[in-house]
Computed example of a mutant assay.
Amino acid sequence: MIHSRWFRLVVIVVLMVAGGLFLWQYNQVDKPQLVNSDGRVFEKARVVDIVRDNLQEDGSRVGDQIVTLRMEDGPDAGQTVQANCPNGLLFGTVCQPGMAVIVISANVGAMGVLFLFFPMVLRGMGPVAAAVITSVIVLAATMYLINGWTKKSLAAFGATLGGILTACLAAIIFGHAVNLSGYNVSNIENLMFVAQNTLIDVGQILFAGILFASLGAVMDIAMDVTAACAELERHKPDISRKALFTAGMNVGRDVMGTMSTTLILAFFGGSLGVWLLDYAYDLPYLQLINSNAVGIEIMKGFSASFGVIFTVPIAAALSAVTHKVEHK
């Protein structure tokens, strides 16, 4: 027993080291310089004084603030510098003396972050295929760390893979039926600029994102069904495959309703600003239902729900198939 635990630990460590080395090597990819960010890092500072304010007589703010900052980290820590504070809701703020802020400092280069999916996309692989490969690796690692290579984890692995592929396929079919594609997204102009300078296929990014978005929920329901079937088989080893499949379907039927609702609410919450604007402007139904933003959110909820629904019979079937042959 102790030998088995040490062997499993060694396998995990070797896999983590090998995976880390592979990811480091795989990320050595040439990236075209789309924006000049050499030497730009984010550092902490504190506002000392307002050199020039942008407050107007009518209470509005126009232009930028010029402020004096005391740097709190980085190579200039403790020094006082002047900085420009843009007038914007996304990257700017209204500075006041004593306020702690994050500034963009141009001193040293920033370290990159290791990824698997993005280097594959930058190297020209289709985003959907890259998402599938990344999901398979994440699934394999997750299932092994939770249960090892047992028939329960293998059944959950297969069911999850089938579920996310179903979700992605449903999104592609739905998008084709209503003339939605990866070129209908709101930031397509920026993506097309990136595509002109890289090998990225921006048309598939939307569907790859749906695959990733449904991965967690699909994995959850797959493990719920397979774990329930495994526990039932452990307490009643003479159960037939048909009865085990029926039990898995009954468990999954109770879970998939709440899981589909969870996914729909998650997509709704992520696009709450879009829905709020549509509601505030009181747009006509035909305009609303034909807008790309609304159509994409409906497609996300529709396809992810399909993935969850189809995961249940796949998980139940795989649990029944991996049941002992003599107990037919």
Rank of each mutant, 00 (worst) to 15 (best):
Q28G: 03
G252M: 09
Q25F: 12
A247R: 03
G252P: 09
E57W: 01
I264V: 10
S214N: 07
E189Y: 12
G270W: 09
T142R: 01
M99T: 04
T226H: 09
M120W: 05
D76W: 04
S153P: 03
T68G: 12
I172D: 03
L244R: 13
D76V: 02
A217Q: 06
T246D: 10
V325W: 12
S37A: 13
L23T: 13
P237A: 06
V113P: 00
A171I: 05
G98L: 04
G158C: 13
L283K: 06
D58V: 03
M299C: 11
Y144I: 04
L232N: 03
R70T: 11
V62P: 00
K236I: 06
M16S: 15
R61C: 10
A130G: 15
I264C: 03
V136D: 01
F207T: 06
A77S: 15
L286K: 08
F22R: 01
G162Q: 01
M16I: 14
I205R: 03
G126F: 00
L318N: 06
L244M: 12
V128Q: 03
V185E: 13
I12D: 07
Q287K: 13
E297F: 03
V274N: 13
G248H: 08
F7I: 13
L9C: 10
A243V: 00
A155S: 15
Q79S: 12
F174Y: 15
R241V: 02
V67E: 04
G252H: 10
A315G: 03
V225D: 04
L69D: 01
N87R: 09
I298H: 08
V274L: 14
F174H: 07
S260I: 00
V255Y: 02
Y144K: 02
G20E: 09
G59I: 05
Q79N: 09
I298W: 11
I2H: 12
F7K: 13
I104F: 01
S37P: 00
A213F: 08
M143T: 08
T261S: 10
A110M: 08
A266V: 05
G301V: 08
V62H: 10
G92M: 07
V294P: 01
G182K: 07
T93P: 00
M125Y: 15
P32G: 02
S4D: 12
V312M: 07
A155H: 04
V17F: 11
G295F: 10
F207V: 10
Q287F: 11
V48Y: 00
L69A: 02
D220Q: 05
D224H: 01
M125L: 14
I188H: 07
G98F: 04
N84H: 06
Y183R: 12
A167F: 06
L276Q: 11
V218R: 05
A77P: 02
D278G: 13
V274H: 10
V202W: 04
D220V: 03
I210T: 08
L276T: 13
P86G: 05
I164F: 14
Q25P: 00
L69Q: 00
S303C: 07
G270D: 12
K300H: 11
V51I: 15
D58S: 07
T134P: 06
M256P: 07
V225G: 07
A155W: 09
N84L: 11
D30E: 12
G39N: 09
G63A: 07
